[in-house]
Amino acid sequence: MRRTAPSIRALAVLLVAQLAVTGLGWSQTPVNLTVQVIHASNTGTTVDPALAKIRSQLGSMKYSSYKLLETRPFSTTVGAKHAMPLPGGKTLDLYPYGLSGGGLELMVTITDGAKRLLDTTFRLANGATILVGGPAYADGVLIVAISGSF
């Protein structure tokens, strides 16, 4: 059986997206994405009111302080690539690479220099939100909330 190295599978998805955009032509379907960057820590008890819902979603992974560092809404199209700097020198890459089954297919990577902290693909229903948390930042962690509508 031929096994695939996880970190390399990302390149496979990348190639699909690249071929689709340059060679076969994805439809230019407009999509709206919103990225919220949150700093969660156990220093202080500040919770941005806008983050109360997210805090309630985190189960036992709760922190006492949640600060919204940035909200970035943007309109894009399927097949377009977006890179966004995250605090601490990290980078968030977003690739909406397809629409299927009523959902938006997204590839998301978070890199820290040469280290690929996360590389994932998923299908996001219209209006849904996914939380990516855990990367260390300052005295706590970063949480990235990604929502999409299309």
Partner: peptide
Amino acid sequence: NMVEIERVDAEGPVMVIPGSGGKMTIIWLF
């Protein structure tokens, strides 16, 4: 909230908590 995770590769341990019934899907990196 509906999110279907197809693939997750991470440098370290990772936990995926599927969302349903209004809960958000969470990917937590350790």
